[in-house]
């Protein structure tokens, strides 16, 4: 009980910053920094004042928010699954590892945004572009980390499997995958942020819907409060995704932290 109270007490900085922001922007009449109250009002009006049947989402929100989210989740999850599977398959073979590592390292180093113009000529504007961009951005770090994780599985784990005749399938799912999972999660953590970047960027450059698109329209119309609502929404999205991911990771890797602590 006491710890909860003290933990909440340590959040004092958030209201303080908000109030300071409100007061100073009102005082300075800053054009590009509307007070938080204004942003919140606009946020409500623009995105969340819809009918209860639509979970209070406005048409605007349904039109821009949902496609962004759908593409983000689908692209990220699909790319991660494929990249993890491929990484583990490659990582279990020393030869394949050596053959493909330089290529993967190279693709990992290419800033994925640079390929959006090329993708655009292949897919046109719209959902396929967003998906391609997200998939490309996410795949390489996840692939690289999965490969690394699967490659350096402790030899004794594998020998134990051999001694006790653990089947290939079970060796893969119950031993290699968990052993590689700390590395895989490190890759996934990077990929969440990259997916967001690629989503926003591909909506900036080649889309007629989505939060990023809506944001750029607001910017070009000098509609500063609306632009800020998009910033806030993306911020919340980033925060929620990150928090959900960390929670998931903590759950899956409990053993890893426990085992490390006692080393």
């Amino acid at each position: 009980m006491k710890t909860i109270v003290s933990r909440i007490a340590w959040l004092w900085i958030l209201p303080v910053v908000l109030v300071a922001w409100e007061v100073s922007t009102r005082a300075a009449q800053a054009v590009y920094f509307p007070p938080p109250s204004v942003i919140l009002a606009r946020l409500h009006e623009l995105w969340f004042s819809g009918p209860a049947a639509h979970v209070f989402l406005t048409d605007e929100a349904a039109h821009h928010l949902l496609p962004s989210l759908g593409r983000l989740v689908a692209g990220w999850a699909g790319a991660c699954l494929v990249a993890i599977a491929a990484g583990i398959a490659l990582g279990r073979s020393a030869v394949l590892c050596d053959v493909f590592s330089p290529l993967i390292h190279f693709f990992r180093s290419v800033p994925p945004p640079l390929l959006i113009p090329i993708f655009m000529t292949m897919t046109g504007i719209g959902t396929p572009l967003q998906l391609t961009a997200i998939v490309f951005g996410v795949s390489w770090p996840v692939l690289l980390n999965s490969l690394d994780g699967a490659r350096y599985v402790d030899r004794q784990y594998l020998e134990t499997c051999e001694v006790f005749g653990i089947s290939r399938f079970r060796r893969l799912t119950r031993v290699i995958l968990p052993a590689a999972s700390p590395k895989i999660f490190a890759g996934l953590r990077i990929s969440v942020a990259l997916a967001l970047i690629m989503m926003i960027l591909s909506e900036f450059i080649g889309s007629t819907e989505g939060i990023g698109y809506r944001m750029l329209v607001a910017q070009s119309e000098l509609d500063v409060p609306t632009m800020w609502t998009a910033i806030v929404l993306l911020g919340i999205l980033g925060f929620v995704l990150n928090a959900a991911f960390l929670r998931f990771e903590r759950h899956v890797l409990t053993w890893h932290r426990g085992a490390r602590k006692t080393d």
């Binding site: 970047i197 900036f204 990023g212 910017q219 632009m227 998009a230 910033i231 993306l234 980033g238 990150n242």
Partner: peptide, 10 residues
């Protein structure tokens, strides 16, 4: 966690 590109228009 705020994606930096969200701040680009600003």
């Amino acid at each position: 966690p705020i994606p930096s590109l969200a701040l680009l228009p600003l």
